[in-house]
C-alpha cells in the first residue's frame, strides 16, 4: 500500500533522487562508534541538532500559553507550569534543553577543534559553526528574560550593562535591545521575545542549512 503510494508520487515527481541524495552518503569506519567506541565524540553534533529540534518544537508549544507582557508573562508561565497538564514537562524540556544544547555544542566544538577538522578545505564551515554558537548564546540570553521572574530581570539588567559598555556604540546597542534608555520593562520584554522567537531562530535556520549543505559537499574529515 505504502509502496504503491510512493510509486504513484515518484512516477509524477521523481522524488527518489531528492531524498536519496540526503540518505546516501558514506559513513566511514573512523566515525562509527559501532566499530571504534572512541568515535562517540562524533555524536555530539548530531545530539546538538536533536536537542535543537526539541527546542523548536517545545518552544512552539510554549507560545500557545505564553504572553510577552510585563503584567501577564509571569502569570502565564506560572499557569502553564502548574495548571496545564504536562506543562511542567514541556517547560522542563525547553529549560533543560537550553542548557544541554550549550553543553553538546561546546563538546562538538572541542571535538572539531582537537581533530583539526576546521582546516582547509573546511574553514567556511567552521566559521558558520562559530556563528551558530553565537546565535545559541543569544537565544539563551534572550530566553532567560521571558519568564519575567526575579532572576530573569536582574540577570538581564547586568547583561544589558555589559552590552552598554561596548565602546562608542554601547549605549545604542543597549537602547536597541531594551527599547528604552532607562527602563527594563514592557518594551524590553517584547523585544527579547521577538528576538528569541523570530529573529534568532531565522538566523539559526539559515546557518544550520549552510552548515549541513557544506558537510554534504565536503564529507566528514578523514581519520587523524
Amino acid at each position: 500500500m505504502l509502496n504503491k503510494i510512493y510509486d504513484w508520487v515518484d512516477e509524477r515527481l521523481d522524488i527518489t533522487p531528492i531524498w536519496r541524495d540526503i540518505a546516501d552518503h558514506e559513513v566511514p569506519e573512523h566515525v562509527n562508534p559501532a566499530h571504534h567506541f572512541s568515535a562517540f565524540v562524533y555524536c555530539f553534533g548530531g545530539l546538538t541538532f536533536f536537542i535543537t529540534v526539541i527546542q523548536i518544537l517545545s518552544g512552539m508549544f510554549l507560545t500557545m500559553y505564553y504572553v510577552p507582557d510585563v503584567e501577564n508573562a509571569w502569570k502565564s508561565v506560572y499557569y502553564l507550569q502548574n495548571e496545564v497538564a504536562f506543562g511542567e514537562i514541556v517547560r522542563g524540556m525547553h529549560h533543560w534543553g537550553a542548557s544541554l544544547v550549550i553543553v553538546m555544542m561546546f563538546l562538538h566544538t572541542l571535538r572539531v577543534f582537537f581533530t583539526g577538522s576546521y582546516k582547509k578545505p573546511r574553514e567556511l564551515n567552521w566559521i558558520v559553526g562559530v556563528g551558530i554558537f553565537g546565535v545559541m548564546i543569544g537565544l539563551g540570553f534572550t530566553g532567560y528574560l521571558l519568564p519575567w521572574d526575579m532572576k530573569a530581570l536582574f540577570a538581564t539588567k547586568v547583561g544589558l550593562e555589559i552590552a552598554g559598555s561596548v565602546p562608542f556604540i554601547g549605549d545604542m546597542i543597549k537602547v536597541l535591545l531594551a527599547g528604552d534608555t532607562t527602563i527594563i520593562g514592557a518594551q524590553t520584554l517584547t523585544r527579547f521575545f521577538a528576538i528569541h522567537v523570530f529573529f534568532l531562530p531565522a538566523a539559526l535556520f539559515a546557518l544550520l542549512a549552510a552548515h549541513f549543505i557544506m558537510i554534504r559537499r565536503q564529507g566528514i574529515s578523514g581519520p587523524l
Binding site: 518544537l57 517545545s58 508549544f61 500557545m64 502553564l80 496545564v84 497538564a85 504536562f86 506543562g87 514537562i89 514541556v90 524540556m93
Partner: peptide, 10 residues
C-alpha cells in the same frame, strides 16, 4: 510529541 500534544490539547 506526546507531552507536547497533551499540553496543547489540555
Amino acid at each position: 510529541l506526546m507531552p507536547m500534544v497533551r499540553f496543547a490539547i489540555d
